[in-house]
Amino acid sequence: MPVPSLGSFEELVLLAVCVLHEEAYGVRVLFEIQDQTGRTVTLGAVHATLYRLQEKGLLKSEMGGATDTRGGRRKRMFNATSAGFEAVRSSRDVRERMWSLMPQLKTSS
């Protein structure tokens, strides 16, 4: 199965889900991305990406249990599928390969 292509924000979301391991849902993903990148992210963007990744088969989800912090509402927990892991890994591989090919030059401004 060919690995679906990843957009840069999709990659961030997917990585965040992997990092959060079993604890990934909308708000946590949002905070993770904000903490790591310093970017301001809207909830809608995060959710839209989560569901898109799910449609691509890179994430799977199920409704979790109720908690007090959310007024008793349940949350949808996301987990990476193996295809999802594969996708981030292969994207990292591509990057590393290309970095290793980079000549040892000082970057000129």
């Binding site: 849902y25 909308g26 708000v27 909830l43 959710h47 959310r70 007024g71 509402r73 349940r74 949350k75």
Partner: peptide, 16 residues
């Protein structure tokens, strides 16, 4: 289908 999740998220975000 999305309502419960979204409202929960909004509330948590707000509290945070």
């Amino acid at each position: 289908d999305f309502l419960e999740e979204f409202q929960g998220d909004l509330e948590e975000l707000y509290a945070e």
